[in-house]
Design a protein around this nucleic acid. Structure first.
Lengths: 212, 212
DNA sequence: CAAAATGTACTAACTAGTTCGTATGTCAAG
DNA sequence: CTTGACATACGAACTAGTTAGTACATTTTG
């Protein structure tokens, strides 16, 4: 068993890897892939640069691991919502609120996705893990839209991926562009009232779109 | 007068600066601030690295100049739309289409804004030029919303900045996140049909939101 | 002991920025 | 109009500092 000694080294590969990933997530998300410094990550870690290369091979390997872990975290949160018992409109509003809150609570993730887009999603393409995600959300939305249309609450037959994009766009933009937007319009998007208003806005917009 | 010789050097400061800016825009937008290489920019230019520092002082100075120029370009395009003669709904739809088409046509600009957000809009803050922009759009939207409400076409009293954000979010996201989104959902957002559908979608969504 | 895990110290390559020297344009005096 | 002096515009090669990645030795663990 690996116990923490006072000064003597104890091997704990799992903890070491997690520690590196945690620090790396922060570093990559605030500086970008090129701007992040391996030495800076190593320093903030309780281990050394040697271990980064031991476990992740290269700076890009570490970046990819960070990206994969971030996506994996979302998948687990998304699945247990049980929206099929709810009325279509209620289900949709719940899903939207969840997406909204997730993005608001995970600016690191949002920033990583922005960074990945700057790199044309090149790393994402190389990772099978990431590509296979998010499919479940589309199925969920598709189900809600179909039920809503059949019941006559939604008058419009919309494409689920389009609806997902509409929701994502708003929720994501609020976080990804909060600095430039906040600077230009002198408005703090992290403000409590603003958050509440926006959460309602996007839901109302999507629902009214489907009903029109 | 500075004539272009066959091989002999001719001084043309204006052209030199523009040349550098053009190349730098491309480089920064595809690699980010840290990822961009001054040497790479210099090579693609018809001049040398020396001139980059001669005219822009530093890598960051060049980046800021690129950013400022990009914003300046938009301002000029935005102003001459003459929306006050149109009916509120028509005016709003025209404005939305313009924003949509602008973002679609200027991925470099979109990417630069994304990059600037990764840097917490730090450079933008230092530039008075940029901060004072975009205010006119808000006034335009405010006017449309007011007229629409008075005429009874819009039932909802919405905040013009919120509406601007809603529009921007959708138009911007389509371009900024086209790579990750396209990879995950195997959908090409630059596809002609998709573009047409999305242009209509965002307009319908905003209008139906205001009417509900 | 063997394999896995870790630390220290190093290096080769890269990269922002500079030094030094040259060419070009301008404008005033002759 | 031509000369020359001064400021602006430019190029090639260099440098100092940084940074991703590694060689080698050591400790831990089973």
């Amino acid at each position: 068993m690996a116990e923490r000694g006072e000064n003597g080294r104890k091997n704990d590969p799992q903890q070491t890897k997690e520690d590196i990933l945690l620090v790396a997530t922060e570093e990559f998300s605030t500086h970008g892939l090129a701007g992040a410094r391996v030495d800076a990550i190593a320093e903030k870690t309780r281990t050394s640069k040697r271990m980064i290369y031991y476990y992740f091979g290269s700076k890009e390997g570490l970046y990819l691991a960070v990206l994969e872990q971030s996506y994996r975290k979302i998948r687990s949160l998304e699945s247990d919502l049980h929206l099929s018992n709810l009325e279509p409109e209620e289900a949709l509003r719940t899903l939207i609120s969840t997406t909204f809150d997730h993005d608001e609570a995970n600016p690191d993730f949002v920033r990583l996705v922005s960074i990945e887009n700057i790199h044309h999603a090149a790393h994402m393409l190389r990772s099978e893990a990431i590509r296979d995600l998010n499919v479940s959300v589309i199925e969920t939305i598709a189900g809600i839209l179909e039920r809503g249309f059949d019941q006559g609450v939604f008058r419009r037959k919309a494409d689920p991926i389009d609806i997902h994009m509409m929701i994502s766009a708003f929720c994501f933009f609020r976080v990804s562009n909060r600095y430039t937007f906040g600077t230009i319009f002198r408005r703090n998007l992290s403000d409590g009232d603003t958050i509440e208003r926006h959460r309602g806005m996007i839901a109302d917009a999507v629902v009214s779109y489907l009903k029109s």
